[in-house]
Design a protein around this nucleic acid. Structure first.
Length: 255
DNA sequence: ATGGCTACTCCTAGTAGA
């Protein structure tokens, strides 16, 4: 089974790109972030015509998450208990083939020391608390999306330049580790200790061509899922071509 | 090297992203 996550940076601006990608990759389930569209205007029909079930949680202009799957999506949930940004469409959950799949678009935080940064830390705290209240790490759980955190220096093209900066600051990394401590494993790290694996490259300064990237999109899985992880690959091909998103998809293959 | 894209919007210039 193939489960993927992709910050698409506007599903409407990249619908053709998305359809081609689905055709090529044939995932069983794909989580999208930054769809930037209301539920009403989401391009549901195109995806359904391609055989996907579609669940969306969106808003105008900003944020927005979606789950599309070849198969039933049950027990759909939006946001989470204690969400400090209840008006923002950032979390969507559904049960697929017995796995609780939750997709997240974690607040960016702008820059360290700002109010939005503090809110980002609170958000991650509250998200963990909600996990504790609603789930057990013994259950099959797959939480994926744009976490806006590069967990370690090996996830950063130039750690010296990024040290202490937004996406790489120690408090953000602590919150990320707290999720792992709860009982989640980073699917990429189950398979390789290698650095140089990135999921986002800045549009500016030809960031992708120079491979100035960060690994900020992740799939965190509970033990029962971790046991079945066979592959976790960043599809860099999707970061090239005409008008790509600034993120590449992360594709996880489960036995 | 703090800029330099990109996408959004009843403000096509200002905001947000990361």
């Amino acid at each position: 089974m193939k489960i993927a996550t992709w910050n698409i940076n506007s599903v409407r601006a990249r619908l053709g790109f998305l359809m081609e990608w689905l055709e090529r990759q044939q995932p069983d389930l794909l989580c999208l972030q930054e769809t930037k569209v209301t539920d009403e205007d989401f391009p549901r029909l195109e995806l359904e015509a391609a055989g996907y079930r579609v669940e969306v949680f969106g808003q105008k202009s900003y944020n927005g998450v979606a789950i599309i799957a070849h198969g039933d999506l049950d027990e759909v949930s939006r946001s989470f208990s204690g969400d400090p940004l209840p008006g923002e469409a950032r979390v969507l959950g559904a049960t697929f083939a017995g796995i609780r799949v939750i997709t997240v678009y974690v607040p960016n935080g702008r820059s360290v020391g700002t109010e939005t940064y503090t809110t980002k830390l609170t958000w991650l705290d509250r998200f963990r608390k909600a996990l504790d209240a609603g789930h057990s790490p013994k259950d099959p759980i797959f939480i994926c999306g744009d976490w806006n955190v590069a967990p370690e220096d090996r996830d950063v093209h130039d750690p010296k330049r990024w040290r202490g900066k937004i996406l790489c600051s120690e408090p953000e990394r602590e919150k990320f580790r707290a999720l792992e401590d709860w009982g989640l494993r980073d699917a990429v790290r189950l398979l390789t200790p290698d650095g140089g694996i990135y999921t986002w490259w800045d549009y500016r300064m030809s960031g992708f061509r120079r491979d100035w990237g960060l690994r900020i999109d992740h799939a965190l899985v509970s033990e029962p899922v971790a046991a079945g992880v066979r592959e976790a690959t960043v599809d860099r091909e999707a970061r090239g071509g005409e008008k790509p998103s600034d993120h590449a998809p992360l594709v996880v293959t489960l036995e």
